[in-house]
Design a protein around this nucleic acid. Sequence first.
DNA 1: TTGCTCCTCACGTCACGTGAGGTGGC
DNA 2: TTGCTCCTCACGTCACGTGAGGTGGC
Lengths: 242, 242
Amino acid sequence: MTWSTREIAHLAGTTVSTVRHYHQENLLDEPDRGPNGYKHYEVRHLVQLLRVRRLAELGMPLEQIAAVDAAGTSSAPQLRVLAAQLTETIARLESTRDDLTRVIASAAPTDLPPGFGEVAENMSDADRAMLLIYARVLAPAEMTALREMLEAPRTLAQLAFADLPPDADDELRERLARELGEDLRRTHERHPWTLDPGAGGPFSREEIRMLFDRAIAELYNPAQRDVLARLRAPVGAAGAAS
Amino acid sequence: MTWSTREIAHLAGTTVSTVRHYHQENLLDEPDRGPNGYKHYEVRHLVQLLRVRRLAELGMPLEQIAAVDAAGTSSAPQLRVLAAQLTETIARLESTRDDLTRVIASAAPTDLPPGFGEVAENMSDADRAMLLIYARVLAPAEMTALREMLEAPRTLAQLAFADLPPDADDELRERLARELGEDLRRTHERHPWTLDPGAGGPFSREEIRMLFDRAIAELYNPAQRDVLARLRAPVGAAGAAS
DNA sequence: TTGCTCCTCACGTCACGTGAGGTGGC
DNA sequence: TTGCTCCTCACGTCACGTGAGGTGGC
């Protein structure tokens, strides 16, 4: 005429572990025991358990449930906080899911920003790494603009730069710097934000400059770095030319 | 010309703890160290960290990220599983939030089923406990019907039953049983599901019968139990009359 | 004897967060 | 000396889940 732990768990729609855990947390009274030590639950335990489960399913922390139990009822402000937290969590998960859905749809490498799948198809490792850094530095609007820019076909100079051997001779470097300088000038004209990238992002100009300097130093070979240095000097986009 | 742990964490938009944790889980290479043991991070570490963070933010478990890292790219099935899990979690949280919103709006005691706030206003503790058990046993449609039933004003017999003293005399018991029997007959007529309650719920008829028997035995006083026994016998709704 | 249910520790989960206790350079 | 940053263990978090090792009745 009483219930075992398994039975009361079943009646409350939960598990044996959960029931034992609630005993440990003093959320559920210990029932009488039989001569063999088995617990004998009564209706009042079931009611207590159902109450606790109801609050737990509403997302209330167990510690708070204990307080509610003592006070008899839970305060509306507490519940409103819970609801607000839920709304926030839901919004975050939805945005994650949408992001994930876009990645799946575009069949892009997961680690690239969404939408950059086709664009990064035949990029060098260095350029992909740069892309990850851009994604962190630039504001969303800038990333969209960047993607559109990258959708245009590469110029011959850009292709040559990507494959530039570390020991390329001075003449080639100079020619590349001039032609890339032309590209860059047009880019600045058409996309003025590229003159001050990351202005809407999370970092200061100083941080961005140092980050890009380090990225260039580590990701490109000496000849490429030399070209970038020549390129930067006449344009004056950043101060670290020499 | 290198970054400290704090700096790389800041650049990647995360915390020092997280960076150290990723070292421990072999998700991030250990950088060289200075003579004082301080870590000196380079661009390749930042890129590695950004990749891991991106996957982690998509909800991928760290262990799986390690595998992706080895394979170079994550499989579409894995991502689809993640997306499906997210969708499920979101749905569950939304239903919880809606439930919570209803509770807040009705200003009802939290542990009662939603919508039963006003109805349970002046119920006895026993009846509230029964309500919790009903909420567990009955199907949603039955709960709605029950709520509508409870919105009707109590009959005189019902009020008398709730306050029946344990030593009420035989005549009173008999009269109450007759009148409540009338109430019950009308209820069965108007709400046929009350003849077989919980048919759409999670329990078998046998389980429900035993549960109600125990609940009555524990929640009501001897006189009330006697009335219920007299009431049940002629109606024959359940077999356990004597 | 075998199977089944029950019991009580004690430890594991997941992705970090939080001290505790110590070092090195200004 | 004081403050600041960095370091490495080791343990805490939250709500349980999972054995390990043992008991009792058929």
